[in-house]
């Protein structure tokens, strides 16, 4: 028994050490640094709440970046979840070559975050790129995907939505676990497909929708590669998400203290929104067997 316990602890040790050294210590250190002026070259100098005061009262870039980030998250997450659910619902049917299609739709998720795909995206949506060529074929005028500040964020959003595979796979697994007898009963009662979807499928999927919502929201707040490679945050900072701002403050301007303060504000925003989601979940998430339901 003792040896099993020791073995268990031994298995856990690498993870716990990794968590402490590479996550917890930097996490706590960044909190301390957020109250300092630190340029990496000299020792951090305690400045109290100065970084946060500057952030909230004098930093126009922060407010611009925060607005852009929130807009990006509120655009990306629902779009991506809706699209992932739509594709998962189609792939839930017994079609010919269904396994091929399931794999094919998952591939963008593996490739999506890579630098190469971001570069490819830049070429596809360039003024004379594939997207405008396709629009031209159907008689629509060209769209200024990157040059127009109003469109640039949407173009970055599309890249994120295109990586819907992981959410789709989770939805697909959830769809397949729904008890078929519920559908049979509904059909016997004469329910339409739409009614079945909204009365049976969607309620039973709410735990998975909730899980995907949290995961996708956290990931969207941390988006970096797409805007960094494709638009470099422009034009006019229309795609300047907070992670880009943190990166530039920390590693290009050496304002580590200030960058840590922005990172902590971002962390608090993510935490608050997650708590709101958890609180609201009591009203819309259905757990089979839950006494509340």
């Amino acid at each position: 028994m003792k040896s099993q316990r020791a073995l268990g602890l031994a298995y856990l040790t690498p993870y716990v050490v990794g968590l402490l050294v590479f996550t917890m210590i930097p996490f706590v250190a960044s909190l301390y640094l957020s109250f300092t002026k630190y340029d990496l070259m000299s020792a951090p100098k305690w400045v109290g709440f100065d970084n946060f005061v500057k952030l909230f009262t004098r930093d126009r870039t922060f407010w611009k970046s925060l607005n852009v980030t929130l807009l990006y998250v509120f655009l990306t997450v629902p779009l991506k979840l809706a699209f992932a659910l739509f594709i998962a619902a189609i792939l839930n049917y017994r079609l010919r070559f269904i396994n091929f299609f399931r794999t094919a739709f998952y591939v963008p998720s593996i490739l999506g975050g890579s630098i190469a795909i971001a570069v490819l995206w830049r070429y596809i949506f360039a003024s004379e790129g594939l997207a405008n060529m396709a629009l031209d074929l159907v008689g629509l005028g060209p769209v200024d995907w990157f040059g127009d500040p109003g469109n640039a964020l949407f173009t970055i959003t599309l890249l994120r939505c295109w990586q819907f595979g992981s959410a789709m796979v989770i939805f697909l697994a959830a769809l397949q676990s729904i008890d078929k007898s519920l559908y049979e009963a509904a059909r016997i009662d004469g329910a339409s497909q739409t009614r079945i979807f909204f009365a049976i499928t969607l309620p039973l999927l709410t735990p998975v929708i909730f899980f995907n919502l949290i995961m996708q929201m956290v990931q969207a707040f941390q988006e970096f590669n797409g805007p960094y490679i494709i638009t470099q945050g422009g034009p006019l900072k229309a795609t300047y998400l907070l992670p880009l701002y943190i990166y530039e403050e920390a590693f290009k301007k050496f304002n580590m203290g200030y960058a840590s303060a922005i990172a902590w504000v971002l962390f608090v925003i993510i935490t608050v929104l997650t708590l709101v989601a958890f609180w609201s979940s009591k009203k819309w998430v259905y757990y089979a067997g839950d006494k509340r339901s």
Binding site: R122, F125, A126, S127, D144, W145, F146, G147, D148, P235
Partner: peptide
Amino acid sequence: SQKQEASEGNV
């Protein structure tokens, strides 16, 4: 123009 350059993807 800068807008043209951005439209072309800042290549």
